[in-house]
Design a protein around this nucleic acid. Structure first.
Lengths: 229, 229
DNA sequence: CCAAAAGTGTTCAGGCTACACCCATGT
DNA sequence: ACATGGGTGTAGCCTGAACACTTTTGG
């Protein structure tokens, strides 16, 4: 049933910039558009917000529908409202960024949607609409937040080694880190729980596995603790 | 002329949490509502986004219309989209926070709108809608950003003394700072230009006036400089 | 036994913290 | 002369940076 309003209203969408870490590299997921405008170009997954769902719900729903990804880390990024950002009509987009544990096999299979593809963040394709701006904003936010919030763990499997964590930081921040200093600092936070397992991945000494303890982090945060790499 | 859409659309508003620093205290500006719902209650200034203006433009326009404040520092905060946050219909609000130089006499007079009033952030009135949440979010963001971005200057007059700056930081962050260490650190950034004037405000030695140099800050930022109090 | 990544301590420099007194002015 | 806020230097501590070798495994 059509709806009537006295004044014209902007349409409202959500877009999710999805990041994953794979093969030592930060990746981002884009969708190939099947419809005009920008048909055949790559775009950030997203869609219209329904009138009976919150923005967070809309972001999760669109992510699930377009990429098959469920239960990922989601954080609101910024709201983009340039008048001409969509050539058809006024569309305001609430952008989110998502972090997925790519190394978990399930999620990797789930993103095998035919029109979705992972790109290295250093080599994004040409993007539709103002999505290049949104992507740049998301990447900058991720890099900034990684330094002072424990969100790197959202890109790794539940169980990970300190080397994996270090390589993640090095790849995303684009710096080299000293192994001994990195381990000293990270373990000093007392936020990583050593597991009874080790990881054996080749002809060398097996690595201790850890998991991140979010409960400890909450407790420390309330006491004024400040995470910083 | 009425507009028709196939699916119902959320209404889109902007809200501006306006901060000012006065009498050694951080203040926030609210408006008394003249209309239902929440008639007679206090609320954050804001209003509907027009279809032909950007979000930033809408925020500035509403601020000007409702409080008379022009040319202030404005930064997008967060977008609030709970389904029932407005009892009338679905309304999504893009919230901003604004920093005004209250001590400049002009802007002080301009906010003498009868229905606007400054409140200490420690004693806000009961607020309409979900505006208490928006206000809390804005205050938390301001406190966080003040530490690592040079935005404190937006709350002071163009020309200010180091003591004024220190008192601002102490009031907003709720900490005591050592005078010598504070001056050493702030002057060490080489971002404050000493003026040829001094400020005489009582029976004591006059204080050196400074201004913040945003151009120098831009240059330093591009070279990887990181401001932090 | 060789290759490859895991794991581990110490030293040094620079920045942060704590701390007390003189200065310039108005009354 | 006194009350008031403005202005200044140093010493100890702690944190972050630099740096090299041994361990454990698979081939």
């Amino acid at each position: 049933m059509p709806h009537t309003y006295e004044y014209p209203r902007a349409a409202l969408t959500v877009d999710c910039v999805v990041f994953g870490f794979d093969e030592g590299e930060l990746k981002v997921l884009f969708i190939e558009r099947g419809l005009a405008p920008f048909k055949g170009q790559w775009a950030i997954p997203g869609g219209f917000v329904r009138v009976d769902e919150t923005l967070d719900e809309a972001a999760r729903r669109e992510l699930e529908e377009e990429t098959g990804l469920g239960s990922v880390f989601l954080d609101q990024l910024y709201t983009f409202g340039d008048v001409k950002r969509d050539p058809r009509e006024r569309v305001v987009s609430v952008a989110y960024y998502a972090l997925v544990k790519l190394a978990d096999a399930r999620t990797r299979a789930a993103t095998d949607a035919a029109d979705a593809q992972w790109f290295p963040v250093s080599k994004p394709p040409k993007l539709a609409f103002d999505h290049a701006t949104i992507f740049d904003t998301a990447l900058a936010r991720l890099r900034a937040k990684l330094r002072y919030q424990p969100i790197g763990f959202e890109l790794l499997p539940q169980k990970f080694t300190l080397s994996q964590l270090q390589h993640l930081y090095e790849a995303v921040l684009g710096v080299e880190l000293d192994k001994r200093n990195f381990r000293k600092k990270v373990l000093g936070f007392d936020l990583l729980v050593p597991l009874k397992e080790t990881q054996m991945t080749g002809a060398h000494r097996p690595a201790q596995l850890f998991r991140f303890d979010p409960v400890k982090y909450e407790r420390l945060t309330k006491r004024g603790f400040h995470f910083e790499i």
